[in-house]
Design a protein around this nucleic acid. Sequence first.
DNA 1: TCCATGGTTCGAGTATTTTCGAACCATTTT
DNA 2: AAAATGGTTCGAAAATACTCGAACCATGGA
Lengths: 106, 106
Amino acid sequence: MPQDNADLPHPERDALQLTEVLFALSDPERLAIVRQLADGPLEMAQCHLSDPSMPKSTKSHLMKVLREAGIIRNQALGRGRLLTLRREDLDARFPGLIDSVLKSSA
Amino acid sequence: MPQDNADLPHPERDALQLTEVLFALSDPERLAIVRQLADGPLEMAQCHLSDPSMPKSTKSHLMKVLREAGIIRNQALGRGRLLTLRREDLDARFPGLIDSVLKSSA
DNA sequence: TCCATGGTTCGAGTATTTTCGAACCATTTT
DNA sequence: AAAATGGTTCGAAAATACTCGAACCATGGA
């Protein structure tokens, strides 16, 4: 019986709030995650943080803030999680924002 | 003896931090202030907040966060203060960022 | 079926931000 | 010089956010 629940809530495109997005991006660790996802989806286990010894609950919380802001999609994949930057939604809602943030943080 | 002290510290252009800027912009009240300054400098007394009854110490603190992030300049003018969006510094450091934020919040 | 792997959730403690009054400072006006 | 105007700074209290262990959940492999 695959795909029971384990599905996390994601805000609709139209519900994305600029200030929430900016807040989520204002943390260096979260921004680093977003940058890793800029080149395409990544399994969460392959998404590494600056501090490799960080507890998984903390890592999970970082992802939650990004997901609830609508910046990333977090879906079940095998026994792990696939993270995707919601670039199309972000571009539609806040044109140029993600591009400039990614370029500025390069 | 005019212009004794009363001069606040402002970060140099090169010292601006993207995450600090994003954080400062992530508050609705602060973002609203930035939008008012988009059309040119404004005397602080003429810069109105969503809640007109907000104490002046709170207003001053909002300005402090924006100033310390390097988003606005706050200089003495007469018996008040002149607020200026540091658009050139921001554009030089984070091309397109302020434009997209201003457009997205319009 | 049992176990290992990868993650989420919850709760409590900690740290950071926000809020706001009181005190203070500078400039202009009277 | 005194008072009014416009702001900053300093605490301290309240609200938010972060951190992390423990418990739990789902999937895949032995």
